[in-house]
């Protein structure tokens, strides 16, 4: 049986530190938009930490949750793409083939989680910042949609390593940059088709909820609700 990558985010552990946000930018060559572009809503963050306030002073509570692409099983972004740039792969990822993308932005429109981002401008790095770029991830040009890939390149590296050592992939060996960095261990990643994996076990907890489950997208990210 093939793998089905999934993630669990424990909101009771999450501290909103945004280590995941910087980890993602570093791993995936996400260009910095700069103030004027960011003010136009063109900053790209494949993962963001949403915040909402509850109550009034002094009985105020803050809630937040990290939101990357939910990698839906029934992803609204896929059927709307006229060029099949947005598609579902065998491991359950909603992948984006950049060289097919013609920038219609239908997918961004269809996504209820706003997990897709359009490149409004050609990315650039002030020299020598380009030296930080990850050679395993390509640069997306202007006019192309991009999104969280669950750091698929990291999965490929790990798989390739396991294959070279002639052994199966271990649970926890593959982790996207956000999961790897998470200081409080709020994020867990793994194969949902492996019932023994940590992610399968956690996804089955009573606290597990899916984001906007009611719209029928069957996300592969399970949020574990805060207990207070």
């Amino acid at each position: 049986m093939s793998r089905r990558w999934g993630m669990v985010i424990d909101l009771d552990r999450c501290t909103g530190c945004e280590a995941c946000v910087v980890a993602c930018s570093a791993e995936n060559n996400i260009a910095t938009a700069g103030e004027s572009q960011a003010a136009k809503g063109r900053a790209i963050h494949w993962i963001r930490v949403e915040r909402s306030w509850e109550g009034e002073f002094p009985n105020v509570r803050v809630r937040f949750r990290p939101v990357p692409c939910q990698q839906c099983d029934a992803a609204p972004c896929e059927p709307v793409c006229p060029t099949y740039a947005s598609y579902h792969n065998a491991e359950g990822l909603n992948a984006q083939v950049y060289n097919r993308c013609i920038g219609t932005r239908y997918c961004a429109n269809a996504c209820p989680y706003t997990g897709r981002f359009f490149n409004w401008f050609q990315p650039s790095w002030d020299k020598p910042l380009q030296l930080q770029l990850n050679p395993d991830v390509s640069i997306r040009e202007a006019g192309v949609m991009e999104k969280c890939t669950f750091c698929y390149q990291r999965a490929l590296v790990a798989e390739s390593q396991a294959e070279a050592e002639k052994r199966p992939l271990r649970d926890g060996e593959v982790s996207p940059a956000c999961v790897q960095s998470c200081p409080s261990g709020a994020m867990v990643f793994g194969d949902l088709n492996d019932p023994a994996s940590a992610v399968s076990r956690l996804a089955g907890l009573d606290r597990g909820v899916k984001l906007l489950e009611e719209v029928g997208t069957f996300p592969k990210i399970t949020y574990l609700a805060r207990e207070s």
Partner: peptide
Amino acid sequence: LPWLQEMPDLLSTAMWG
């Protein structure tokens, strides 16, 4: 550091200022 300038503040969501 530009990554941190563009990292939204958790509570205010402000960037670059």
